[in-house]
Design a protein around this nucleic acid. Structure first.
Lengths: 161, 161
DNA sequence: TGATTTTTGTTCATCGTTGTACTTTATTGT
DNA sequence: ACAATAAAGTACAACGATGAACAAAAATCA
């Protein structure tokens, strides 16, 4: 029984992915610390950045973009609203939908947060040549597409059962 | 005021990193689903794989490797012990330390989990050429080193204050 | 039109992770 | 040897995320 052949750390792709996962985990932790002075956490900043780029988005669509559950948005968004960073405006045509927008204070907080995040990423990836950076991004988009397809397939199976 | 110049989505490294982070998040979610039949979750598998490769490691060192808090290990490991997957053996020389090992059942569970994870990664990265995969891993190791340095620097500042 | 199904958002119970405070055991410094 | 300090592990309270059950509004379709 030559189990050694299948040890994961002999698989270059496995090892590579472990590096990616660890880098992401660390990045999240470091970013969390650097955002602390602003009084926001990474999930908040993710939301704010998306509203900055896509104002008027619904909670549902936002949750889909961020790959989290609807209930998550339902917990976080009222907090941000109470803090005066976002506004939730009922859609006139479809009264189920709450459309999300940044307040001026929210826009300002977003810009500060983005500056911190962008600076951190620039500092961290400074030694990664741009072409390799872009190649990586391209590969990651393929990975994302593959994983979403695999997830949809699993969902269909669940439905069928 | 040319704020547009600093919009994060104009920064290629920022955009690239967003792809990386999303891919990681998705990978975790998909892996969680595929591990469900085994009755273990991704944190459990991370632990088991580390014990598979580094038997006799202490809880503290394991926590450091996994980038989580000590208390996390203190919550998870007793669960795995009760399920008969690991053993916690008191060190004779230093009675503070609990050395961790896999039981036969744990080894078997680990092999099943690793098979699932490795297969998922292979499937997902099949279209990423090996050389790009390795280049990515190399870059990620640099990222990890940079972030750990930055975190240590922040810790020192905290101590000084 | 009226009944069924879908979609949007909320609520709540549950679980995982964290940080802090604490106990026990080693190490260090005098 | 003894006091102070550090390290390993635990307990607990707080927070975040999840999924299921639910209410309200729209879409579908007969």
């Amino acid at each position: 029984m030559n189990k050694n052949q299948s040890l994961p750390w002999d698989h270059p792709r496995f090892k590579s992915w472990v590096s990616v996962a660890r880098a992401c985990q660390l990045m999240q932790q470091v970013l969390t610390r650097q955002l602390a002075p602003l009084g926001i956490k990474t999930p908040h900043l993710d939301i704010l950045i998306n509203l900055y780029r896509s104002p008027g988005i619904s909670q549902q669509d936002l949750a889909r973009k961020l790959l989290v559950g609807r209930s998550n948005m339902s917990m976080l968004l009222p907090q941000l609203e109470k803090r005066g960073l976002i506004a939730r405006i009922a859609d006139r045509k479809d009264r189920r939908i709450l459309r999300l927008e940044l307040t001026p204070a929210g826009r300002s907080a977003t810009e500060q947060g983005m500056a911190i995040q962008t600076a951190l990423i620039e500092r961290t990836l400074i030694h990664t040549p741009l072409d390799q950076c872009l190649a990586m991004a391209g590969n990651m988009e393929i990975v994302i597409a593959h994983l979403m397809a695999e997830e949809r397939a699993a969902d269909s199976e669940t439905d069928a059962a």
